[in-house]
Design a binder for these strands. Structure first.
Lengths: 359, 359
DNA sequence: TATACAATGATAAACATTCTCAGTTTAACG
DNA sequence: CGTTAAACTGAGAATGTTTATCATTGTATA
């Protein structure tokens, strides 16, 4: 039996519509497809689930009918029979909305065409039952898998729970904390190195660092990379030039005041994220200093705020949406493969906030 | 048969655990509940779905068992039988991440305890098939309902589609565009009035306005309210004091430059959102003007950026998370009631960017 | 021609609910 | 006390897939 796709679709559609008329409006089911294609529903199921053991010509027949009557498998029925929903979850506690939204957008991009949708679950690690709550969420909806973003991705209690209930998961973090299969590493160390190179090449020697929230891997890695980058130029990060921040704008202001009070003053300040860098800029403005003439400022993340301050921030761009897309793709492949998760390398974006040190 | 709750729970739990041992690990089903409670599964179903026609004593029996064996109904099976998933969707195209995230958080809050989860669907109204895509999304997952945020909430093509497929929906917008049942109005006009009052009370007479994106109801309403507020003080918004913006920081800078070039210069500028207000502030900085000494600036939304600029912005606070919560609650109630959606009134937050006009 | 293997089908059994409809209690009323 | 309506309850069908088990058919290779 040869297939003339266009004619067949028209013909099958016609037959289907006349059947509909007889039986009253009703959505098409796998049985309809099977009947119209002249195969068993088992075979239709095989085609839909992309099983390998289907002859090319058979697949074509089935696909033609699927298209003709616009068959969409019922997700609930599939879920009931296969014991998992066509849903992927993202569990997050990152307080930055731009991170969250870009990540969601990327994940959705990666999910596109797969039939999976994204369900969101913010969590609060200060709540004693946040793991239990996530567990309920996953089990109730029978999620196919979850993607974890920092900093909850660094939480071993959450990871333990996921392993325990046997749910596929992918942890996005700055360091490899788990089986490579379950990790997507964003190389924050590299970003730190890039900043060190940039500032050293500009000629800076007295360089300060504003840390992020205590215990956050991202901040630690950025600092480690920064220090090792400085070391290549024979420099060390002196303790007095390290200010503790909280990843917030306000903490950036405070850190800025603290660093600006030092003598000799640093000629460059690297803050572990853009918000704090903007805060440092704010502190400078209050004290009548200007960037980059007096002090160069560098941030990290390349969020909107980096472009909404003046001077605009030199910063490290992290391709969050791309990461989300890769994460989703990896997640979907996880069922059938054991490949390690992808590694992401951020890059430096030079803007007006950094320049040569003052003479 | 009397119920002694505590004893019964212990007893039933014991029996259930011993059964589990016999049959191997397995999740509990409605049949287990029915058997242990000595009723039919239909009755258990009635209890779970809070049907009215169940005797108090029966309900108690069933609830005791449900609690004892920690029964959680299978969402897929419910979905298959009832033709809708335990999912609510949010469809959005608001470019501001903070809006999106706060809204999601609020919706989730309102969904808490209901067993419903939230699935997200950004869309792009420039794509010709964005409605079709949303339709597929809803029908594939058989969503219980969707919440629409601006500006896609203002799109009649989307609303038509939702009515056509019979999906419950709630449109969040600045004006009543639909049946009250399907609307949640955020009173942007009121916000505009509040700003006018504030500036007029401070003594301003030459006041400028920066509009948002053309065709956006929010901007139009804010402007309308602003004008009517000015009118109460015998003022009108002159055409030359209206600058067209795009709701972006950059467009705020441009609008700022344009307004600062006017003579006589306005003594106050109201921008239709915070980002543009920050942009105006940026333009002022470049031209060596200071707020509020030379010109007062007022924004709208009270997003993070309002606090991350100096001077911090006087602005109109919109309680987005609360709106999300109310929206979710209204959505869930929509199945059984025809109540109109809630109306939200924003309020003014005074900060350092506004003050009396220069003498 | 025999053999192995890939492709396919028939059939029934899950999967765990809701829903239809009829049957049984219960309470109220004369 | 019987009657009747209303409240409550249950048996079994329906929902649309996947999965398991075998049996069968076609197809290429030795």
């Amino acid at each position: 039996m040869t297939i003339n796709k266009e004619n067949d679709i028209a013909e099958i559609t016609r037959r289907w519509l006349s059947e509909l008329e007889l039986k009253g409006q009703r959505r098409s089911t796998i049985n309809d497809v099977a009947r119209l294609a002249g195969v068993s529903k088992k075979t239709v199921s095989r085609v839909i689930n992309k099983s390998a053991d289907v002859r090319e010509s058979t697949r074509l027949k089935v696909e033609t009918v699927v298209q003709a009557i616009n068959f969409q498998p019922n997700v609930q029925a599939r879920g009931l029979a296969s014991r998992h929903a066509y849903l992927v979850g993202v569990i997050y506690d990152n307080p930055n909305p731009q991170y969250t939204v870009n990540m969601q957008q990327g994940i959705l991009e990666g999910l596109k065409g797969s039939g999976y949708e994204l369900v969101v679950h913010p969590c609060d690690r200060n709540q004693p039952d946040f793991v239990q709550e996530a567990k309920q969420f996953i089990e109730r909806q029978k999620l196919r898998g979850v993607i974890l973003t920092p900093s909850v991705s660094e939480d071993e209690r959450m990871a333990d729970m996921l392993r325990y209930i046997g749910c596929d998961y992918l942890r996005i973090a700055s360091v490899k904390l788990d089986d490579a299969k379950h990790m997507m590493v964003s190389n924050d160390k590299f970003g730190g190195i890039a900043v060190a190179n940039h500032l050293c090449e500009l000629g800076h020697r007295r360089i300060a660092f504003v840390t992020g929230k205590k215990g956050f891997r991202s901040s630690e890695e950025r600092q480690k990379g920064f220090e090792s980058g400085l070391a290549e130029y024979g420099l060390a990060l002196e303790a007095k030039y390290i200010a503790q921040g909280q990843y917030t704008f306000e903490s950036g202001i405070e850190a800025g005041h603290q660093l600006l009070a030092l003598r000799p003053m640093p000629t460059a300040i690297f803050a572990a994220n853009d918000e704090m860098a903007a805060g440092v800029l704010q502190a400078m403005r209050i004290k009548q200093f200007r960037a980059p003439d007096n002090i160069s400022i560098v941030g990290y993340d390349d969020f909107q705020i980096a472009k909404n301050v003046w001077p605009r921030l030199t910063t490290v761009h992290v391709p969050i949406a791309s990461m989300g897309k890769l994460a989703a793709e990896h997640m979907l492949a996880m069922g059938t493969s054991n490949e390690p998760g992808p590694e992401i390398t951020p890059w430096l974006i030079e803007r007006e906030s950094s320049g040569p040190p003052p003479k």
